[in-house]
Design a protein around this nucleic acid. Structure first.
Length: 599
RNA sequence: GCCAGUGUAGCUCAGUGGUAGAGCAACUGAUUCGUAAUCAGUAGGUCGAGGGUUCGACUCCCUCUGCUGGCUCCA
């Protein structure tokens, strides 16, 4: 699951941007042509550079280059200017089909070794190339008719990338850019990037005092501050509540286990994100990267009857994974995180219904958190798999039927399942139209077999249950990060770390303010009071910056009438309210987990 | 882990080899105030860490470390 880059999921349907309609195909052509323009410019400015591949990607394009010196930010601007120049020259782009040997000869003249390698790999008799002026590239196309069609682009970054994605191979320099049909679209996209930067959860997390990282603590390890922890607790309580209603049993399991457990599960062999074992009394223990074996051990702690199934074991299980230093990213990619995990053990005849219930629960919870747009993917059997084909087919069918009975539109990712079973993934769309994967519901044939799971059937014989592994929010850390960015820190009332702040105008109002604060606390509101000797404008500004949903101002008028003046965050002054009525309304909004404050 | 960039006060950032700076936040004092910043003062830094070059290093070089953008992988 990719969070950062490819998080903005693909949209295959026709989409409307601005006043024109473009198919994804036309975007792809433009982006791909822009990548050629980039390569053209680079070769003009830096002769001798070897070109790798340069495809269109989501939101833009890139091109990989092999060159001794690194490209600097200044180089990037120079390249962009050269691209502009080439665009103004409106050079025709022509398709040329040439015999393989001749093509190799052409690329040999300019020492484009990487291109030759690609041509040789393909084994075509004739090679399709595209030529624009002095630049020729081995490529199937299609492309825009001339460079003049590529006008509105921007180079965004340069980074390392492995040749053919092979970590042990050579590393190329990849230049990323984006391109659009109109200036406005480009500007809109760039301002979207700006907006995303502004609401980056790492920035807001510091500003709002939600969580922190500490250099001496270790990379990817989170310190949840009081306000962040308050939000987490609300999420957890809600999660437990829904799981209780859905017939889950909650477990607690340890953070370490003997290495043998992980040998049996196959993790030591197939999973590369485990921390090195801890040796104690000659026994090797391992920090848990997953919760599954523990839940399985609970299942296997005694003989199970078919009558008990389905068993749904849930746990907010904190796991530790050694993620490579370069991939850590705020709350979205950490080394210690808490999965909202559950394992469902069921019979074949229950499989479809259990999957359906899991999907339904996921969508219900996501909606409560404010995500009602999503993409759903069904991934089927990959080439390398374990278990038997019949089980795979049965299970895949069940997943599909479950999706249909929930009336969920989905896309099939053929062969994209994990080796141990088919799965359903749900990606939610946030306020900036970015997609984030949260839910994953996976069948697991591997562990069921490795731990020899069984129950006694109606026939008195042993049967193997189906094992469903599922995380609905994904991980609390990542989900919190997504929430912060989705709401730009303006949490809905029920989630807000501080729900109400009472601001007395002068010292003589402190007592009344504190009594309100206390009354709110008695009613389970997360409330606070600001008795600093500051002007009201200052305290209001401070409360607004803290993004506190409800601001109550009390002065002479309010004390006398036993009211408060309500100000709603980013809405403004709502005038005086009766305290008891207000409290009832607020409690109601919180109880209903309302996403808007309407008082 | 790899490529590139980056690290100065709690936060945002100045400071190109010669005694470490600003704004905000914090603290102290005055102000008792009606819907997004009252005024004055104080304190706060081994300039990420270690080594080197130099009469002298925040500044130049090396190593390590954190962070950022990617690659690869992932909840």
């Amino acid at each position: 699951m990719k969070m950062k880059n490819s998080s903005t999921g693909e949209k295959k349907e026709l989409r409307t941007i601005g006043s024109k309609q473009y198919t994804d195909e036309s975007f792809e052509v433009l982006r791909h042509s822009a990548s050629h323009l980039l390569a053209h410019a680079v070769l003009e400015l830096f002769p001798g550079t070897k070109t790798g591949i340069g495809p269109a990607v989501e939101n833009g394009f890139y091109y990989d280059f092999l060159r001794e010196e690194p490209f600097t930010p200044e180089d990037l601007s120079a390249i962009e200017r050269k691209m502009q120049e080439l665009s103004l020259n409106d050079i025709p782009i022509e398709k040329v089909v040439i015999p393989r040997e001749e093509a190799i000869h052409i690329f040999a003249q300019t020492e484009q070794d990487l291109k030759i390698e690609l041509i040789k790999e393909k084994g075509y008799i004739e090679v399709t190339c595209f030529r624009q002026g002095s630049f020729i590239d081995f490529c199937l196309g299609p492309h825009v008719p001339s460079t003049g069609h590529i006008k509105h682009f921007k180079l965004l970054s340069v980074s390392g990338a492995y040749w053919k994605g092979d970590e042990n191979g050579m590393q190329l320099q990849r230049i990323y850019g984006t391109v659009f049909f109109s200036k406005k679209e480009l500007e809109d996209y760039l301002s979207l990037l700006e907006e995303a930067k502004k609401r980056d959860h790492r920035k807001l997390g510091t500003e709002m005092d939600l969580f922190s990282f500490h250099e001496n603590l270790g990379g990817g390890l989170i310190l949840w501050h009081p306000k962040g922890a308050a939000v987490r607790r609300v999420i957890e309580n809600y999660w437990y509540e829904e799981h209780y209603k859905e017939g889950y049993d909650v477990l607690y399991t340890p953070h370490i286990a003997k290495l043998d457990v992980w040998r049996r599960s196959g993790h030591t062999e197939f999973y590369d994100a485990m921390y090195p074992p801890i040796k104690s009394d000659g026994i090797e223990y391992e920090l848990k990267p997953m919760n599954c074996p523990f839940h399985i051990m609970v299942f296997s702690s005694r003989q199970r009857s078919y009558r008990e199934l389905p068993l749904r074991f849930a746990e907010l299980g904190t796991v530790y994974r050694y993620e490579r230093s370069g991939v850590l990213h705020g709350l979205l990619r950490t080394r210690g995180f808490t999965q909202d995990d559950a394992h469902i053990f069921c019979r074949a005849d229950q499989l479809e219904e259990e999957i359906r219930r899991a999907i339904s629960l996921a969508l219900k919870m996501l909606k409560v958190f404010g995500f009602s747009d999503y993409d759903v993917f069904l991934s089927t059997r990959p080439e390398k798999y374990c278990g038997d084909v019949e089980d795979w087919n049965k299970a895949t069918k069940a997943l599909e039927k479950a999706l249909r009975s929930e009336k969920v539109a989905f896309k099939v990712d053929e062969g994209e399942g994990v080796f141990y079973g088919p799965k359903i993934d749900i990606k939610v769309k946030d306020a900036l139209q970015r997609f984030w994967q949260c839910t994953t519901i996976q069948l697991d044939f591997n562990l069921a077999e490795r731990f020899d799971l069984s129950y006694i059937g109606e026939d008195g014989k042993f049967h193997r249950p189906f094992l469903i592994h599922r995380a609905l929010l994904g991980s609390l850390e990542r989900f919190f990060g997504i929430l912060i960015e989705h709401y730009n820190g303006n949490f809905p009332l029920w989630l807000a770390p501080i729900q109400a702040i009472i601001i007395p105008i002068a010292d003589r109002h402190n007592k009344y303010a504190m009594s309100l604060d206390n009354a709110f606390k008695q009613n389970n509101l997360r409330s606070t009071v600001d008795i600093r000797r500051e002007k009201i404008g200052y305290k209001i500004r401070d409360a607004e910056i803290q993004k506190i949903p409800l601001i109550l101002i009390v002065g002479d008028k309010e004390v006398k009438q036993e009211t408060a003046s309500l100000r709603i965050h980013s809405v403004g002054d709502k005038g005086q309210v009766n305290v008891n009525e207000f409290l009832e309304k607020v409690k109601n909004l919180i109880q209903n987990r309302s996403l808007t404050v309407n008082i």
